[in-house]
């Protein structure tokens, strides 16, 4: 029997329900705390303005990646047989990635459609906890040893979670 693709099995519930709910929450809050609600709206708008160009870049990059790499190459780099190379890309990619995870979710979901392993996505998302630009601040607050230990354990933790995800996913590739 033909397997259903991940794309076709996406959940039906989405923004059509949540968006009106959020608008109602805003309206209710505006009644009781108009200034704070407007401040929240302004914050949200500034996030949107900040993220929008990055989303455009992500869409273009995804187009480029897909055009440059054939599906079989995706599988070779980040698929089931990717081995250490795949893990390395997942870990280093997560550490180097910046910005809101909302941007990365879109890209990772696209990559997942190209048979990128769930374990590598989990590893990528967890190693994002290592924020290179903020490490000096972390050291100043919590000390050098703490920062090094936490960073090392995050990497180990990310790999273990990826392995667990692999075990869980094996045989049940699609949601």
């Amino acid at each position: 029997m033909k397997k259903a693709s991940r794309k076709n099995r996406k959940p039906k519930i989405g923004g059509k329900i949540l968006f009106p709910v959020v608008i109602i929450i805003y309206l209710l809050l505006y009644n009781s705390a108009p200034e704070k609600t407007l401040e929240a709206l302004n914050k949200s708008l500034s996030i949107i303005t900040h993220l929008l160009p990055i989303f455009v870049a992500v869409i273009v990059i995804m187009g480029l990646i897909t055009a440059l790499l054939q599906v079989k190459n995706f599988a070779g780099l980040l698929g089931k047989q990717s081995g250490i190379k795949g893990w390395s890309i997942g870990i280093i990619g997560g550490i180097l990635s910046h910005g809101s995870s909302l941007i990365w979710y879109q890209m990772l979901a696209d990559l997942r459609e190209h048979d990128v392993r769930d374990s590598l996505i989990v590893t990528f998302l967890y190693t994002r906890a290592i924020k290179l630009p903020w490490l000096p601040l972390m050291i100043s607050y919590f000390g050098f040893t703490f920062t090094v230990l936490l960073t090392v354990y995050i990497i180990f933790g990310a790999i273990i979670q990826g392995i667990i995800m692999d075990k869980i996913s094996s045989g049940k590739q699609y949601d």
Binding site: G14, G15, K16, L18, F19, V21, V22, I23, I25, Y26, L29, A33, K36, T37, E39, A40, L41, N42, K43, S44, L45, I47, I48, L51, F55, I59, L102, Q106, A109, D110
Partner: peptide
């Protein structure tokens, strides 16, 4: 197409983030 399809949900999450940061 995928991005536009998910846009209402993305906007919802961003609007919730704004609320959370302020309240």
């Amino acid at each position: 197409k995928g991005f536009l399809f998910n846009l209402p949900l993305l906007l919802s999450v961003i609007l919730l983030t704004g609320l959370f940061e302020v309240f």
